[in-house]
């Protein structure tokens, strides 16, 4: 099964990104495909490489990057939402790319299921 995932909240402030990450990991472990993870609203803040959490906390951004590397995930950050919040190519973490909202609609068309995580 091909999943599309929508993440609407930033890291740390809200559990949405954690829930989405754990869902993706479990889906991949079960042999499903994750067609795309689309970051929208404050969710674009998951993509900044400037994040530096305390050492005893999880690194949410790096965790997404690692999952993307291991499974060739397509992590897409909405350009309009990103520009509003100061997320640019120069501070984008590895594994993420900035693109248009059309990528979200396309995931809706191409994935078998879309699951939304937000506030």
């Amino acid at each position: 099964m091909k999943f599309g995932i929508l993440v609407n909240e930033g890291p740390y402030q809200h559990q949405a990104s954690d829930s989405a990450y754990l869902f993706c990991k479990a889906a991949l472990e079960r042999g499903h495909e994750v067609h795309r993870v689309f970051f929208y609203h404050d969710g674009v803040n998951n993509a900044t490489r400037l994040t530096e959490p305390p050492l005893d906390d999880r690194n949410i951004v790096k965790r997404w990057t690692k999952l993307a590397e291991e499974h060739k995930l397509d992590l897409v950050v909405c350009v309009a939402a990103a520009l509003r919040r100061g997320i640019l190519d120069e501070n984008l973490a590895p594994g993420f790319r900035i693109s248009g909202l059309g990528q979200l609609v396309e995931t809706g068309i191409e994935a078998d299921r879309v699951v939304t995580f937000g506030d």
């Binding site: 609407n8 929208y40 609203h41 309009a80 909202l101 059309g102 979200l104 609609v105 809706g108 068309i109």
Partner: peptide
């Protein structure tokens, strides 16, 4: 909150996909 505005932006984009 910004959700209503940004939701409307997705709706407008979706029109281009003939769904």
């Amino acid at each position: 909150t910004v959700y209503a505005l940004e939701s409307l932006e997705v709706v407008l984009i979706s029109a281009a996909f003939d769904q």
